[in-house]
Amino acid sequence: MSKIDVFTLGETMVLFQPEKMLPLEYVRQFPKSIGGAESNVAIGLTRLGHSVGWFSKLGDDPFGRYIYKSIRGEGVDVSSCLFTDKAQTGLIFKEQLSAEDLNVYYYRKNSAASLMEAAELDESYISQAKILHITGITPALSESCYQTVMKAIQIAKRNKMTIVFDPNLRLKLWAAEQAKSVFNEIASYSDVILPGLDEGQFMTGMTEVEDIADTLMGMAEGDKTIIIKLGHNGAYLRTRDESSYIEGFPVQHVVDPVGAGDGFAAGIISGILRKEPLSLAVRRANAIGAMVVSVNGDVEGLPTLQAIERFMDPRGTARDVKR
């Protein structure tokens, strides 16, 4: 197993996204790709020059093997992944009727990934990493997945890893009351929390950005970094020592909004690994989100470090970044 900077875990599904904007019942061809919040972040980070380990349980079927090979082909270490013949790999279908009208259909109930178990985590492997990245999707898949996430958090705490939590609220997967309880539990252990505005409101009951950040800051002892995603308006950064709104990047034409938050998370984690000022990391994360929404697919728009620097400074005067 290779040494890694970041460890993440979660479900990736085979994604079928038509090239034409039509109701699904009229679509005859479905190009195949992959989609999953945690693997999106993993791929985003490898393109930015970092080493990432991704754990999941895949169906011992053609779709599971396709996901495994695809993520491995992006440079992510998948050596800890497991296959099972007890369940099938999950599927996603996207229906896009316009740039603003996007429907996503999941076929993931009782999927292979929902069978992940805490005992399957390898602490000696995970503890190599500096950062644990988790989302609120994985604990929603099953009780055993919830226990797996909590075990990963325990491992991270024991090994003094930084825990980055992106809520990624999916109310189709579980009841709102349970989701809120689990999100706030995970947030209390996390060092960096990356909610969207609606997720922050859901977790705290507050409506204003600053109040949400203050509430999340007070959920547990210790220093926390709160970064609230505000879409085209950028993001709000709050730490013990600073608070600021950081402007977003204009997008002329939104093609596919899915995956923008995952690109944002990759930008933040990359900045932490490079020990950059958080304001710079947030600015780059905003730029990555803008790039991702301009391209179809979950991972296709995730940029390399060179591409994001050109996007941020098209005149070619961007400073060198740490590599």
Rank of each mutant, 00 (worst) to 15 (best):
M116A: 06
Y146N: 13
D313F: 12
I153P: 03
D191N: 15
E242V: 02
P62A: 14
E11I: 12
I212W: 07
E74V: 04
D77F: 13
R158W: 07
R319W: 04
T225M: 11
G59Q: 01
I34G: 07
E242I: 00
P314E: 05
A113F: 09
N286M: 03
Q154M: 02
N233R: 15
L230M: 12
T84R: 12
H133P: 00
G248Y: 03
E210W: 02
A129M: 04
V27S: 02
Q88C: 04
Y26G: 02
E143A: 13
L58R: 04
D241V: 02
M206N: 15
I4M: 06
L45F: 09
L91N: 11
K224W: 09
K20P: 01
K130Y: 06
T46K: 14
P31Y: 06
P257S: 10
G205I: 13
V27W: 00
A37N: 05
E38D: 10
H253G: 03
Y125S: 02
Y189F: 15
G205C: 14
V299P: 01
R72K: 14
L121W: 03
D77E: 11
K130G: 07
E247Q: 13
T239N: 00
S270L: 02
K109R: 11
R108N: 07
Y68K: 01
S124F: 10
R319V: 08
A118E: 10
A87R: 06
N286A: 08
D262F: 00
V293F: 00
M150V: 13
G59E: 01
G59F: 01
I43T: 13
I131C: 13
A287H: 04
V149R: 12
K157E: 13
E242G: 00
G205R: 14
A175Y: 02
W54A: 09
R47A: 11
T207E: 15
A290Q: 00
R274W: 02
K157Q: 15
P18I: 12
K157S: 04
S56C: 07
A307Y: 08
L273A: 11
L280V: 07
Q17L: 14
E242P: 01
D191S: 11
S127I: 07
T317K: 09
A112I: 03
G271E: 01
D198E: 14
M116F: 01
G263W: 01
A266C: 04
H50V: 08
K69L: 03
R240I: 07
L237Q: 08
T148H: 13
K224I: 03
E123T: 07
E117N: 05
I269E: 07
S2L: 13
Q88V: 13
E25H: 02
E38Y: 02
M21E: 10
